[in-house]
């Protein structure tokens, strides 16, 4: 029941965002008939998708996690994104590359967490996630400029690849 209500509310919010500007009855953005129809549709879709949308537990309902996620997006993630692009610019212009594929084990166990981490790694300096070991949640990373120091220890230390992202992800999604 709780899953059904949450999924319906999320569907309704997405429907409202996609139909802004349909009239000016509510807040100057939506018309009543549009909201009624959206509510009907999201009741149906919420019933169909309730077990797909929420798999294990309700930990993402905690607003502190969403606040941390926003902080993460604006703070360290955006800085890393900007650095990544300057790095790619440098490599495009000079053509200096030293690539390789390494394995890291970040120690994150949930599906949402590993998805967030893989997407963050793809968008941060010089790294691209290639494959994942689904049993142990190890990531295989294509690294454009391999550091010799990092290769001494065999599952390569996370701090060379993605800084302190695993700590952030653990606080957000686990």
């Amino acid at each position: 029941m709780k899953r059904y209500v949450i999924t319906t509310i999320v569907c309704f919010i997405i429907y409202l965002l996609l139909t802004t500007g349909s009239g000016n009855d509510v807040l100057g953005l939506w018309s009543y008939i549009e909201m009624l129809f959206g509510l009907l549709l999201s009741l149906i879709v919420g019933y169909a998708a309730r077990t797909l949308f929420i798999k294990d537990n309700f930990r993402m309902l905690n607003p502190v996690r969403w606040f941390l996620f926003l902080c993460y997006l604006i703070g360290p993630f955006f800085v890393a994104l900007a650095k990544a692009n300057l790095d790619v610019a440098y490599r495009v212009i000079t053509g200096k590359i030293n690539p390789g594929i390494v394995k890291i084990s970040p120690g994150i166990h949930t599906d949402l967490g590993i998805t967030l981490l893989a997407n963050s790694i793809t968008l941060t300096p010089g790294t691209l996630s290639v494959d994942i070991d689904e049993k142990t949640n190890d990531l295989y990373i294509h690294w454009i400029n391999v550091d010799k120091k990092a290769l001494e220890k065999k599952p390569v230390d996370c701090k060379y690849i993605c800084g302190n992202f695993p700590q952030w992800i653990r606080r957000i999604a686990e």
């Binding site: 994104l81 990544a84 692009n85 490599r91 968008l123 294509h142």
Partner: peptide, 18 residues
């Protein structure tokens, strides 16, 4: 300019997203 698929993905993903 880049020599293989993976490095091309670096350019094609990060730069267009930013």
């Amino acid at each position: 300019r880049f020599p293989d698929v993976y490095t091309r993905l670096h350019a094609g993903t990060k730069c267009t997203t930013f």
